[in-house]
Design a protein around this nucleic acid. Structure first.
Lengths: 322, 322
DNA sequence: GCAACGTGTGGTATCGTTCTCACATCTTGT
DNA sequence: ACAAGATGTGAGAACGATACCACACGTTGC
């Protein structure tokens, strides 16, 4: 069932059917006829043919490190909120934190397929910069500041600074557990904020560990730290996941030092003690990124809008006496 | 840059370039020439044109109620594991638990766009049955048993039964908190298993609440139950989320009755007491569903394979004396 | 010697749309 | 009354690939 058949059945030309489906400029009489035929046959235009002809796919590629993450699934949900409403579908690509896969997907998406890309990135190396510099498809980066491209990011530095103050107000020997500085947002910025808060009080960190994003990493890191510096009285963790691993260790050892996380994951209020953390409006970030992309798609202009999202420090029990 | 240009530059016909890209049957000499031209120009075949011509899109539609869920994100991850490897991309559609949206996406996907569909369904009503009966696109249902279609589902009934035994071995006045029976897997089957375990010991439930999937629902439901039946000594919850809400309430009231969940979400080991639950191999379910779909895509046969996945009961602290 | 087959090649039709153009008709304003 | 514009229509050319067909050549086997 194609547009030709419909045209024949309705006794009009193919072009008129096409207009009926798109512009207008069709007489009421023929409109009625075409409408009836389409109704009867259940005809639906071939998206493939439309894609070929119009160069629009109605697809937006979303590249994420992994789906099974609180923050990322919220971002994706936000993107969906906005884009689904505008008739776009999300083409999801998970990279499993593999930089090479990420680059591959960027390539794939660029070549074809999608009208735009939203990149939920973590690490940007030379290869990324080269690729992004001459990227053909509208792209928005979310979760990281990236000079020269549209991006929606979080005020990681100040957020980290403020949450660290929950520690510095009562602790003197504070340790740091974070991630690789290659991750500018989570690794570098949060560390910068952490150190800024310490120097406000003329403190220096007791110890610093660099780990992955998993709970076990936090668990083990705090073990190493406490072994070496048993008098540590506060721990800053770059993510809630890490912090929860830390709490688990502390509970086992019945060591009630203070802990902060970042991200306010769903589990932050479930652990005991409830975790002090920073809430980022991830869903909003996703929405915002989608809106910027939409704007680029509509105007066809590559604008390098940079949107910094707010945050909210939430003090719970892990920075009190528990 | 299209296949014509490449053909011209390489001094061969368009067809030969096409063969070079697909079958073979090209002389070494021309292969070399074409290869060089493609290399130089960075030419990439238009997916849109390929889609139109071949009727293959390389896309698989995945319909899920919401992305921000432990079980679902694991299923999606599993689907991705398998399908990405075979050159398919996932087209994600979230329905926000809205039946109408789900039907819409099913329609959208059927009409065009995708080679196959994986439906992560919850509720199947008349409308679904009508639609699925004459569905044109290979489809696999995951998470629910569905007669007449390929499906990958879990042994919810026996899993619920076994996990309930963790309660019946020491409790006599057991309450039930579940979800709507419209959800066959989570609502009906799990309840059936629960009741079966009770009757093994000639027990009857003390109370039964039907709620949504959120933590707050569990929190409030257990409040209502304990108000009416303060001597309740065990609670079966149809999902971990609900159970965690229940635990939160119990901790606040310092009431240490026994609790079970189902699904073994990431938070089950984080709450205090650690939650006894059932582990479903969601990621495997996703993989399995993807494999079944692949088989259907390859053979072009609509097979109604039904795969029941295993489970593992995990006893933790919430069914011990905590 | 020639039928049968495998290999290699190009021409052309085709997929199902939308776009451009030419032209016809119907409203306006002056 | 007539130009200018809005409205309405269809023919035919794209879009960029693959599929099908015809044909050419070289090798076999009998």
């Amino acid at each position: 069932m194609n547009i030709n058949e419909i045209a024949k059945l309705a006794g009009v030309s193919r072009a008129t059917v096409s207009r009926y489906l798109n512009n207008g400029y069709v007489s009421a009489e023929k409109k009625e006829k075409i409408h009836r035929v389409i109704e009867e046959t259940g005809y639906i235009p071939s998206t493939q043919a439309q894609m070929l002809r119009t160069k629009r796919t109605g697809l937006v590629g979303v590249i994420i490190p992994k789906i099974n993450s609180d923050s990322i699934s919220r971002i994706v949900a936000g993107i969906g909120d906005v884009l689904h409403g505008e008739g776009y579908q999300l083409l999801l690509a998970t990279t499993n934190n593999d930089e090479k896969e990420e680059l591959e997907y960027l390539q794939t998406f660029q070549n074809n397929h999608v009208d735009g890309v939203i990149l939920c990135g973590t690490i940007f190396e030379k290869e990324h910069k080269r690729l992004l510099k001459k990227y053909q498809v509208p792209i928005v980066i979310v979760g990281q500041y990236y000079k020269g491209e549209a991006c929606v990011y979080h005020d990681d530095c100040n957020a980290a600074k403020e949450v660290t103050r929950l520690l510095t107000k009562s602790c003197k020997r504070i340790a740091y557990i974070g991630v690789t500085p290659k991750d500018k947002a989570v690794g570098t910025e949060r560390r910068k904020g952490f150190l800024a808060a310490l120097s406000e009080r003329s403190l220096t960190e007791v110890a610093s560990e660099q780990v992955q994003f998993r709970m076990e990493d936090g668990y083990q890191a705090i073990g190493r730290i406490l072994k070496k510096y048993p008098d540590t009285d506060g721990v800053f963790c770059a993510t809630d996941h890490i912090a929860i691993g830390v709490l688990q260790y502390l509970k086992e050892k019945d060591n009630k030092i203070k802990v902060t996380g970042m991200g306010d994951s769903g589990t932050a209020t479930i652990v005991e003690p409830k975790l002090s953390s920073v809430h980022f409006y991830y869903r909003e970030s996703g929405k915002e990124a989608a809106r910027v992309l939409l704007e680029m798609l509509e105007t066809q202009v590559k604008m390098k809008k940079e949107i910094k999202m707010g945050y909210e420090v939430i003090e719970r029990d892990s920075t009190k006496n528990w």
